[in-house]
């Protein structure tokens, strides 16, 4: 399979260290991390400005949580591709996110390979077929 073209990723988490970890792993896996957001509101704003291929979204965040952010993202762009990256104990919120159209989710804390595999799964593929 040919290498997928580098996807453009927006990383959302209120913890700097978590953003760094996701960013570092994503970059190593060939993604272009086009932006970071520390809460849901920033995520929605930056999504509108950056139009990334994929968004990672935390759930518990200040100002606007991940559920609300996902709702807003999907409302403004029904094709928005969002994977939730959240702690184990946010089960009912995660379930709500699934209903709202989240593409997938990853449970924190995660191993590096898990995130790499998840990202690879949702890397954009060349849209045009010969």
């Amino acid at each position: 399979m040919p290498n997928a073209m580098p996807g453009r990723l927006l990383v959302t988490d209120d913890a700097l260290i978590m953003r760094m970890r996701i960013r570092d792993i994503a970059r190593e896996a060939g993604w272009e991390v086009v932006g970071e957001a520390g809460n849901g509101r920033e995520c929605v704003e930056r999504y509108a400005a950056l139009r990334p291929d994929l968004v990672t979204l935390d759930i518990v965040m200040p100002e606007m949580d991940g559920v609300e952010a996902l709702r807003a993202l999907r409302a403004s762009d029904p094709s928005a591709r969002v994977v939730m990256v959240s702690a184990l104990d946010q089960k009912s919120k995660l379930s709500e996110c699934i209903r709202l159209g989240a593409l997938d989710f990853l449970v924190k804390p995660f191993d590096k390979e898990r995130l790499v595999a998840l990202l690879a799964k949702y890397a954009p593929r060349p849209a045009a077929e010969g």
């Binding site: 704003e45 139009r51 990334p52 291929d53 849209a127």
Partner: peptide, 19 residues
């Protein structure tokens, strides 16, 4: 090959982060 809806490719290089 119906293809599930792919996200609309971002148009050009505009919209760089300026935050």
């Amino acid at each position: 090959e119906p293809g599930l809806k792919e996200p609309a490719a971002a148009a050009g290089g505009e919209g760089r982060p300026d935050a």
